[in-house]
C-alpha cells in the first residue's frame, strides 16, 4: 500500500505534474485552438490564447478545397480494413499458439515478430514494383493488405498474450461439455476474449491510421489517406496556420479519442507482452 502523503507534498506533485503535462500537450492544444482562429489571429504577435473570435470557417475551407472527406474515407477504409482483416487471420492463429502450444510455437512467434522488424525502406522498391506489376499502385485495397501484413505480427502477439490469460481448463471444460471446436471458439473463447480483441482492434487501428511510410509512398491521388493529405500541406499552404491547424485537428481528433481509451493496452501491444 502506498502511504498517505501530506497535503502540501501532494499539492506540489500536482502542480509540477500538471505543468509538465500541459507543456507536453501544448502543441496539440495550440493546434486545436489555432484551428478556430482567423489567419491573422493565428500568426498574431503576441499570440492570442483564448480570447479571439472563434470561427469554424477554416474547417469549411479545408473540406471545400481539398475534399477532406475523401482522405478521411480512405483512412477509415485502410486502417479499419487492415485491422479487421488482420484480426480475422490472427484469431485462429493466436488461439492455436495459446492453447495448443507445440515446441515450435515460440519460434513461430519470434519469427513473426522479426518480420515486423524488417525495415520498410529495405523492401520499398520490391513492394513498389509489385504494386506496379499488379496494377495496384495508389489503390486502397492494396494498402489494406500491406498494412494488415505489417501489423499482423502485433495483432497475433497481442491476441496471444490475452488468450494466454484465459485458463486452458475452461476450454477443456467446454470440450468435456460437448462443445465442438466451433462452439468453443464462438461461445467460450470469443466472449471471454472480447476485451482483449477490442483493445487489439483499437491499437492496431491507431497504428494503421498513423502509418506514414507506405501510405506516403504508395499513394498519390485515389488512395491517399489523411497522412498524405497532411503531408500535402507541407508547402505552401502550410503557411496558412489556421487552415493547417484545422486540417491537422481533423486528422488527429478521432484517433486521439480512441487512443485515450487504449493507453493501457498500448504498453502491452507495443512491448509484445514483455512489460505489463
Amino acid at each position: 500500500m502506498a502511504r498517505a502523503v501530506t497535503t502540501p507534498r501532494k499539492a506540489l506533485n500536482t502542480a509540477i505534474a500538471w505543468t509538465i503535462g500541459i507543456l507536453i500537450f501544448f502543441p496539440i492544444l495550440w493546434t486545436v485552438l489555432t484551428s478556430f482562429k482567423t489567419e491573422a489571429e493565428a500568426i498574431a504577435n503576441p499570440p492570442v490564447f483564448l480570447f479571439f473570435d472563434w470561427t469554424l470557417e477554416n474547417y469549411g475551407v479545408v473540406q471545400e478545397r481539398s475534399n477532406y472527406m475523401r482522405f478521411l474515407w480512405n483512412s477509415v477504409i485502410i486502417a479499419g480494413g487492415s485491422t479487421i482483416l488482420g484480426i480475422i487471420i490472427a484469431v485462429p492463429a493466436a488461439w492455436s499458439m495459446a492453447f495448443v502450444p507445440s515446441k515450435r510455437t515460440k519460434d513461430i512467434l519470434l519469427w513473426m515478430l522479426s518480420t515486423k522488424m524488417l525495415p520498410a525502406v529495405g523492401v520499398l522498391y520490391p513492394i513498389y514494383l509489385l504494386c506496379i506489376e499488379l496494377g495496384v499502385l495508389d489503390n486502397r485495397y492494396a494498402l489494406v493488405v500491406i498494412l494488415m501484413l505489417i501489423n499482423l505480427p502485433i495483432i497475433v502477439w497481442m491476441l496471444y498474450t490475452y488468450f494466454r490469460e484465459i485458463p486452458g481448463e475452461i476450454l477443456e471444460a467446454a470440450r468435456m461439455d460437448g462443445a465442438s471446436l466451433k462452439d468453443e471458439l464462438l461461445y467460450v473463447l470469443t466472449p471471454m476474449a472480447v476485451p482483449g480483441i477490442a483493445s487489439t482492434l483499437l491499437l492496431n487501428f491507431i497504428l494503421a491510421w498513423n502509418e506514414a511510410f507506405w501510405t506516403l509512398n504508395l499513394t498519390s491521388v485515389d488512395a491517399a489517406p489523411l497522412t498524405a493529405f497532411i503531408a500535402s500541406y507541407s508547402s505552401p499552404e502550410g503557411l496558412f496556420f489556421a487552415k493547417l491547424s484545422a486540417a491537422s485537428t481533423m486528422a488527429i481528433a478521432p484517433i486521439l479519442i480512441l487512443g485515450w481509451f487504449s493507453q493501457k493496452q498500448l504498453v502491452r501491444g507495443l512491448t509484445f507482452g514483455a512489460v505489463k
Binding site: 507536453i24 507541407s234 493507453q263
Partner: peptide, 26 residues
Amino acid sequence: QGVVRILVIAPFFVMPTVSALVWKNM
C-alpha cells in the same frame, strides 16, 4: 493523475506528418 497521464500520452497518437508539420510551421 488520470488527466495528466492522458495529457502526457497524447503526442503518441498524433500522426507523424501532423506533428512534423505543426512543429515545423507553428
